[in-house]
Amino acid sequence: MNLYTSSFNRLRLPVLFKLLVFLLILFLILWMIKTSLYAGVTKVRKGQVATVGKIISHQQNPDVAIFGSSVAWVHFNPEIISNITGRSSYNFGLNGTPLTQYQGLLKEFIEYSDSEVIVIAGTFSEFSGREAVAEIYRFTPYLDNYYLYEGLEQIDPNLLWKMKYVPFYPLTTLDYNFFQYAVYGYLGRIHHDDETEVNGFVPQHKIWRDSPRETSLKATISNKVVQQYKALVSLANARNKKVVLVLPPIYYEGVMKIENLQEIKEVFQSIAGTDNYFLDYTSNEICLDKSLFYNNTHLNSTGADIFSEDFSNKLSIILKQ
């Protein structure tokens, strides 16, 4: 080694050392930010992120568990269900989240819970599948859970791989909602959107608003999603749980636009089989009263209470069988 090379290496070492120190400090800062945000969100007591957390941490173990997207979240009033059936009840509905996305959560719940009945509420487009994970921030703090990760990976394996293996990549997927919930968690506050929540249920005090005026709708049916349904129903049955599939009320004008509604009902019935139950509310008298809806597929608070009472009476009969 000549004198020039030796001098060069002596000059380079401090620069490399400084770079390594900078990277270490940056790593620690990002780690602290990530850890603090996740910890704040896990402290949230109400809302959609809290619903996910309560399943992952096994905080809720009701006799009657309601799962589904918004048609579960705003339709099933657990207080009414409990009062009529005499069973404890909790609404795990996640807005904008069909079974193909929340399947991991449902599997986790089936494995740990002692629930007697699992209610799965679906929409007419329930079997259409999904190409992207919606509202990823709800699940981000809990992706270490095997079932949750596995279920979401089936939708977007590239995203989930990066979320798991690329350092701090999850921070790039977070939005304002996540940061707001993290702050509220630390402050012990409840987000204003969740103030009316009761056991997961959020009544919608709304009046009718016009929906898009499609002349007709035809929902696609993915065999992959149907098989996901069947696998979860079979797992629930293997754990001695009854499954009740529900197609909630749809305003009759909306019903008339769905070209393959009968086919969708047949799929629900085939999933239920002979050991479970399928309740179809799309021809119920509730569907004729516009004042009970705020759009074609969602009941307002008054409609939800009427529906919950009717559903609870039917569930009481099922529980006795």
Rank of each mutant, 00 (worst) to 15 (best):
S6E: 13
S7P: 00
S7Y: 12
S7F: 10
S7K: 07
F8T: 15
N9Q: 11
N9S: 11
L11K: 07
R12D: 06
L13G: 01
L13Q: 08
P14S: 04
V15K: 09
V15Y: 14
L16E: 15
F17M: 14
L19A: 15
L19H: 13
L20A: 13
L20V: 15
V21R: 02
F22E: 01
F22S: 11
L23M: 14
L23I: 13
L23E: 13
L24N: 09
L26K: 12
L26E: 04
L26W: 11
L26Q: 09
L26Y: 10
F27H: 14
I29W: 02
L30F: 09
M32I: 07
M32A: 13
I33A: 00
K34F: 05
K34Q: 15
T35Q: 05
L37T: 13
Y38G: 06
Y38Q: 03
Y38N: 09
A39M: 03
A39P: 00
G40I: 05
G40N: 02
G40M: 04
G40A: 07
V41C: 02
V41T: 13
V41D: 02
V41E: 08
T42N: 11
K43H: 12
K43L: 15
K43G: 05
V44H: 10
R45E: 12
K46D: 07
K46L: 04
G47W: 01
Q48A: 10
V49Y: 11
A50T: 12
T51W: 00
V52G: 03
G53L: 02
K54E: 03
K54I: 04
K54Q: 13
